[in-house]
């Protein structure tokens, strides 16, 4: 029997697919059909009656309704994206700062890491909702000093609203930083420490090292964190857009309600989110010619070791020659 020969690249690709397999199986089993169905629904007036599903073709009417008649959804969608810009910036910066601090040789580093990650595990949907309702996600000082009032008085409404919203949920926003901190830390640990040594020898201080070494090295991590955070913000149970879509599904007796409208809203939301992710990708994309190879892959490390060994051998051999 002929032995099947699989190349190194194919083997690696296959490994990747094996890791992807659970997600693919889940997607095909649970999501694919509803996904296609929801596109179909979005072109219909859908009623789940006592005797079965009743669908009436309406074409693009549901989409027209969303943009021309529905005042709530488009406003919430705009608010979500304006809020997200600010929140994304705060989460990305805050988690980077914390990750850099936790990456220092501290005593009890593991405890601090756990503490920052804990809210993600502990605070599930209903708990989070309760905390928000109780006002536990706002800093009382911000309210007692009337910071929101000042913001609203000083800035145009377009800027004031997202800022006030950010202040009123600042603790919540910081809670969302658990996973980004972990991702940043992975990136930080992969940076070759000799680069910092070399830059110090060249006279760079910590500030310059951060901008010239740390930040460029973390660029891919910023993208991953950006995508993760945006998707997280978009799908959290506290998201108003999601709540509206969910609510409209079961209001088929009212104008602007029903599965048809809710499906078209969901697609508008998903496509807008897709666009936002593309923009994020473009912003964080590494420019050609500016790439700095400061992160080492496993192969690079192996190659470097090999070179170092060769150099040592050469040196030894050379030394012997000179000795003669």
């Amino acid at each position: 029997m002929k032995k099947l020969r699989i190349g190194l690249v194919t083997r690696r690709e296959m490994k990747g697919y094996v890791f992807l397999l659970p997600w693919l199986v889940g997607f095909v089993t649970f999501f694919l059909v509803p996904l296609v169905q929801s596109v179909w629904y979005s072109w219909h007036d859908v009623k789940v009656t006592a005797t079965g599903l009743k669908m009436t073709w309406v074409g693009w009417e549901n989409y027209r309704y969303i943009f021309q008649q529905d005042t709530v959804f488009t406003e919430q969608l705009t608010n979500f994206f304006t809020d997200s810009v600010l929140r994304l910036a705060v989460i990305l910066v805050f988690s980077l700062v914390i990750a850099m601090m936790l990456n220092q040789p501290l005593k009890g580093k593991g405890v601090f890491r756990t503490l920052f990650f804990l809210p993600i595990i502990v605070v599930s949907g209903p708990v989070l909702e309760r905390l928000v309702n109780e006002g536990a996600t706002a800093v009382p000082l911000i309210e007692s000093y009337g910071v929101n009032g000042i913001v609203e008085a000083m800035l145009p409404p377009m800027l004031a609203r997202p800022l006030s919203s950010l202040f009123s949920q600042i603790i919540l926003v910081l809670w969302y930083s658990g996973v980004p901190i972990l991702i940043y830390m992975t990136g930080l640990q992969k940076i070759d420490s000799t680069l910092y040594e070399a830059s110090m020898i060249d006279g760079a201080n910590g500030w310059i090292s951060f901008w010239k070494i740390t930040l460029p090295a973390l660029r891919p991590m910023i993208l991953i964190n950006g995508v993760y955070t945006l998707v997280f913000l978009a799908t959290t149970g506290l998201n108003e857009v999601m709540a509206t879509i969910n609510d409209r599904m079961f209001r088929s007796g009212e104008p602007g309600g029903g599965y048809g409208i809710a499906s078209s809203m969901a697609w508008v939301y998903a496509l807008s989110l897709g666009l936002a992710l593309i923009v994020l990708l473009l912003i964080t994309k590494e420019r050609k010619g500016k790439q700095i190879a400061i992160q080492k892959t496993g192969e690079q490390i192996a190659i470097e070791r090999m070179h170092a060994e060769r150099a040592r051998n050469m040196k030894r051999k050379g030394g012997k020659k000179h000795g003669r």
């Binding site: 009623k47 088929s252 007796g253």
Partner: peptide, 11 residues
């Protein structure tokens, strides 16, 4: 909770 919805859905 909502009678008009039940009527609209033919429930």
């Amino acid at each position: 909770f909502n009678v008009p919805n039940a009527v609209a859905n033919e429930w």
